[in-house]
């Protein structure tokens, strides 16, 4: 099963990878808990769009569902942690 990528696909994948690395840098460096949560949230959104793009490349519809569920779970997680920071849980 061969996967044929054209040059634009490769460039897009490379740019998204760099974006993920930048987000991950902030996730590791912190310095505050909310910085990490925010970096994780950004990574969630980035990963969701990467999943959708991979779904297009592999031609698998199920990737879209996974991306949607991933975005939903990330959203709920951020809300819960924000509530915790505010002291309302």
């Amino acid at each position: 099963m061969g996967l044929s990528l054209n040059i634009i696909d490769i460039i897009v994948l490379a740019i998204i990878s760099v974006a993920l690395i930048l987000d991950f840098y902030r996730f590791v460096r912190g310095p505050l808990a909310s910085d990490r949560v925010m970096a994780a949230d950004t990574m969630t959104v980035t990963t969701a769009s990467l999943l959708v793009f991979l779904g297009y490349l592999f031609d698998r519809y199920i990737y879209l569902d996974i991306a949607l569920i991933y975005a939903v779970l990330g959203f709920i997680g951020v809300i819960v942690i924000a509530r915790y920071l505010e002291g309302g849980v």
Binding site: L32, S34, V37, M38, D41, V45, A71, V72, F75, V78, I79, I81, A82, R83, Y84, L85, E86, G87
Partner: peptide
């Protein structure tokens, strides 16, 4: 719809923290 809500919640949580 979800992203503004989560970033607003995070900002307010951080400020009150």
């Amino acid at each position: 719809l979800s992203n503004p809500i989560s970033s607003h919640a995070l900002a307010r949580g951080s400020y009150r923290h």
